[in-house]
Design a protein around this nucleic acid. Structure first.
Lengths: 194, 194, 194, 194
DNA sequence: CATGAATGAGCATTCATTCAT
DNA sequence: CATGAATGAATGCTCATTCAT
């Protein structure tokens, strides 16, 4: 199968680069150097460019991966047969939970999100997150329990409040329970019909 | 706070640099070069450093100015004698309005907010915004109309939803009225007691 | 000369690499990358180094091949039984003709000729061209029709004027006939005894 | 006059860079690094780019300067009142003399002349050399002493033969007188009417 | 005070070459 | 033999900052 292939591209290396880039961006912002990323990933400087043709490409791909990771996290174990509130609570808990469990990923995602360079792939990634949420919630928009609204508005509300709460908890972990709860009440009030 | 600093001579130059930096950051992110900022501000490369000892200082000061500008905008014409809802509606309209009227300032603020460099002054700036909102709303937290919550949580909710709505409107101006309205309902639902 | 070298298997690949290198050098100069040459030749990056141990070796060999190609071109159909003028006219026409018919080869040859890297093989190649011309003209140097001069001086004159005329025609093809003719008169005046 | 100028650009530095670039190109070809040129010129790496925005600009300017230097050299002390032959001999001697007295300049000029990068400025430089020669010789083209021909053809012939002879002498200095003389006879035969 | 020439550390990227497959 | 992933030295260029003018 690979008889004529000199050496296959290594998924392990690619992932190491992406993981290291996440930490580097969390630590130093978008100014994180490719040299440092390669070194910390345990590959040669030039190897990084075998996997990602430019630094911008690396950052775009990383953005997509992180967004996909988050999207996957909120979809995992989704209790599709429960009532809306239960299901939304799942989204809430998992959204905030992902950020708290993966502080570097969260930080890198925040920084990448404001870069001009990733703006081209941003809409696409947002569409995927939104589509994922849509598949879980859209049907409920006509149930009367939720305020009628475009699905991307609903998706945006969840993410905006989720980000805020994650950030506040990250600054003071002792408030985790209180803010997670308060945040959930806030979200439910924000999007429910009444 | 800076009253006792030795102020350089020309406030006009200082302001030109800050205004140009805003545009430059909106256009090129934090990588905007001091050379380009100085050139577009109409001053010499070295002059910039007469007014701001380092690039980081410039960016920190700019962050504070932009945050103060926004805080001032939401406090202007505040209808202090009206009922809570009217007053919050004022906050909401002015918060989103500022972002829509000043897209470069808004963009620069977003980018500066995620920089490691400004994180030192960020808490302080947030305190000021929060204090401003507190002075307008705090008393109502015990009125029963709003959900009991820390004032910074309330402040964070307003800003999180305001940012999201501004962003969505900025992407599609035809939705301005619809989203401003929907956003207000969302905010009110998010923070009211019932 | 290379009869005793261990010849690699495929002459087709070797020739493809040499031909592609010619185009690449004509297009990008000596900075043409081995990667691009290999790609355009349809072989793997590493394969190039199976046929030529280093880039410099490739360029040296290419120089020799191009020079030999030119030398072969002027020797083809040589009218050895005609008078000096006819025979020199043959040299002239074929020398300029080769450059006009093979613009990439000519361009690559020009560029290779000024490289430090090929200087080691240059004298040898020049000797061969010169020897070829010598075999055709040398006897005439004592005929009284040509100015008495070292054969390499004569050879150099033909090449210098030939290069110049080829270049000028290449820049404006409409002057081909005029310049070819004028060039021939110039050459004959340059080397004839009177 | 320079009251508002921080520091004037230094012609000495600019010339040092150009002179050093000449040596560097003579030694290493167009691959000569900007770092090495700056170092040997005694200026900072970045300083080179204050005087020449890119490496290509440096090389183009250098080409023009060298060509102008050569053009100036052949025009110096031109015996405008002598007969054609004497004046052409002056051109010949000075052309070859410049190359022999300035081997690095000559070498650098040769290498720069084949670079794609300088091709844009090449025609212009050639025009100047040609115009200079034209101003010295053009009138004689109708005298009957010289073969009727475009002035650029005549200019090309002088340069082609001059380059060849310079090169040959450079390889073996003991032949200087012989080749200079032989070259002159060759040139005169090449361009004279009979 | 205002200016921009001067600087060298730092950057993303390229490249000839090696070698595991 | 053929391949292309792997590599780190080298490159052209940028940039925040300094300081002579």
């Amino acid at each position: 199968m690979y008889l004529d292939m000199a050496r296959p591209l290594s998924n392990a290396k690619r992932n190491a680069i992406l993981a290291t880039a996440t930490s580097a961006i969390a630590a130093s912002g978008l100014a994180a150097s490719t040299k440092a990323i390669a070194r910390d990933a345990g590959v040669g400087e030039g190897t990084l460019f075998v996997y990602f043709p430019t630094k911008d490409d690396l950052f775009c791909e990383l953005y997509l991966e992180l967004k996909a990771d988050l999207t996957r996290a909120i979809a995992a174990d989704y209790p599709k047969n429960e009532d809306v509130q239960t299901r939304l609570k799942h989204l809430w808990d998992h959204f905030v939970g992902w950020g708290l469990k993966n502080p570097e990923k969260r930080d890198a995602l925040r920084r990448l999100a404001v870069s001009e360079k990733v703006s081209q792939v941003k809409d696409h990634a947002e569409d995927e997150t939104c589509a994922s949420i849509a598949s879980m919630i859209e049907a409920d928009l006509s149930s009367g329990l939720l305020r009628v609204q475009p699905i991307e508005f609903l998706s945006g509300t969840i993410q905006a409040l989720g980000d805020m709460v994650t950030e506040m908890i990250a600054r003071d972990r002792t408030k985790a329970d209180e803010y997670l709860n308060l945040g959930w009440k806030t979200l439910w009030g924000a999007i429910s019909a009444r």
